[in-house]
Structures are given as C-alpha cells and as structure tokens.
Simulated assay, not measured.
Amino acid sequence: MPEKTTLSESGYGFVLKLDDAIPVSDSTGLPPVRYNLSIEPGECVFVECRDDVRAAQFTDFCAGLLPVKKEEEANGKQGSVSCMGLNWAELDERRAQALRGRIGRITGDSGWIDLYEMHLNILWPSLHHSRTPYDKLVAEAVHLSQLFGLPGLPTQLPEKLSPLDRKRSEYVRAFMNRPSLLLLENPVSLGAPVELYNAFFTELTVARERGCAVLWIGSERSAWAGYARPGMQRFRLGGNGLIK
C-alpha cells in the first residue's frame, strides 16, 4: 500500500468487500461457493485465474452485475458484496449506475462498440455513469491519451486502430473520471513496449496514492511480478472459489 495514500473518501472501511457472498451462477462460470475479499483504499490485490469466463464473471460479481444468492437459497448466512460501503443488493438501478461511475474497468474482450468511433467508446461510460461536463471529460481523455502514447484522443473506428493503440485506449477508458476502484482483467500485454508498461504502472500508482483500490486479475503471475510488493494480497480463483 502506498505510504502517502490520500483517503478523501474515507467514510467507508473498504472500497470493495465480499462477505460470505455466493454468486448466482451457472456451472460453466463462477463456482457458487462463498467468497470473502476486502480491499482498502489504495490497496492493490492480485488474483490469478486462467479461465477468462470465470475471471469476467468474478469482476462482474464485484461490480454488482452478478447477484448474490439470497439467504434461503444459500442455506445459511446472507452474504453480500459492497462497494464503497454500499451493498449492491440494496441499491436501485439509478444509484447502482452512479456507483459504477466510480469504477474503472479493463475487460478481457475490451467491449468496444464497433459502430462508434473510439473517442465515443472511451467517453461513453463516464457520460453514462457521471454528471461530469463533456468538455471536462474530453480534456481528461486527451491528457490520458497522451500519457499512454497516443497523439490525442483517437477518433477512428476501433477496427482501424492497431492492437497496440486499442490497448492504449483501454487504459484511457479505465482511468477516466478518477475512479475509486479499478477492476482489471489481464491489463498488461507482455509484448507491449516498455514505455507503455511504465506509463500504466505510473498511472496505477498515482491512482492508488489518491485512494483508488485495485483488483488485478490475470492468467500469468509474471505480468504483475514487477509491480507486486511484500504484504500485497494474492489469491487464486479456480473451481473451489477464491483461495489464498
């Protein structure tokens, strides 16, 4: 955890907390067992998972998109998934969407909408989930684009960009709007230029220093080996759930 973390949003104890939560999931996705995980502001937690579908469902679970089994279905204690002190199950759709506006994500499939130019793809989550003025979002997106090696905010269709520039665009979208939580599925491409690695790790550290919590889920431990430090939580996500 960074030594100078700024906890401007310290009204809650954990940014993300899974408390004996059992996901509603079919047998091909996230195992329906009890999950426990707590991430403090500024903390970075690593989860090794070699199943892309399982990894995607786990991040959906953390983001309140995959529901928790109710007490009668769970045969015992009612579990919960909370983000910034708020239980996803207790939020109406409007409040849940507003809370998701505080989350930055990198997903395994990228989720680009091919019919929209890349700048719209990048800006859309912030426009949908927050009330930040459009001009301010554009200025932030241009700044982040340049940090990650793009000449400016890309305006081409996703398919017209190189794989490397699409990766840069993923970083821009994830760090937009100063997120309080980052959910990152395989965020690092091991073949990327060292300059892009350095830019990603630098921005990740800056986010953590202002209190952003990070859940990094990936298939290869080597991807985070250069960033991990003693004391950081590490788990493995497999057929038995989340195990240290």
Rank of each mutant, 00 (worst) to 15 (best):
Q233H: 14
F58G: 13
S145G: 11
P133N: 09
R131T: 10
D92L: 13
H119N: 11
E72W: 12
P179C: 07
N121C: 04
G79F: 04
G29V: 08
W216N: 07
L147K: 10
I122D: 04
D92S: 11
R178G: 10
P125S: 12
A21G: 07
E73G: 09
L37M: 14
F200D: 01
T59S: 10
C212S: 15
L183P: 03
E159K: 06
W124R: 05
I22H: 08
L153Q: 05
L65V: 10
R131I: 08
H129G: 02
A213H: 01
T6M: 10
M232H: 04
Q156G: 08
L157E: 05
Y12E: 14
T132K: 08
L99R: 01
E170K: 03
R34E: 12
L215E: 12
P154Y: 00
A207K: 14
E117T: 07
W124I: 02
T107S: 08
A74K: 05
R221L: 15
P2I: 07
R221H: 15
L183I: 08
S8P: 03
W112V: 08
I103A: 14
E220R: 12
P158H: 03
I217K: 02
P32T: 14
R168N: 01
S189Q: 12
Q146W: 05
Y12W: 11
L66Q: 15
E203V: 12
Q156M: 04
I122Q: 09
P67V: 02
A98V: 03
T5D: 09
N177P: 11
C44L: 15
P32G: 14
G11P: 05
S38D: 14
F58V: 11
T202H: 01
V53R: 15
N36H: 15
M118V: 00
S169I: 02
L30F: 12
R229K: 12
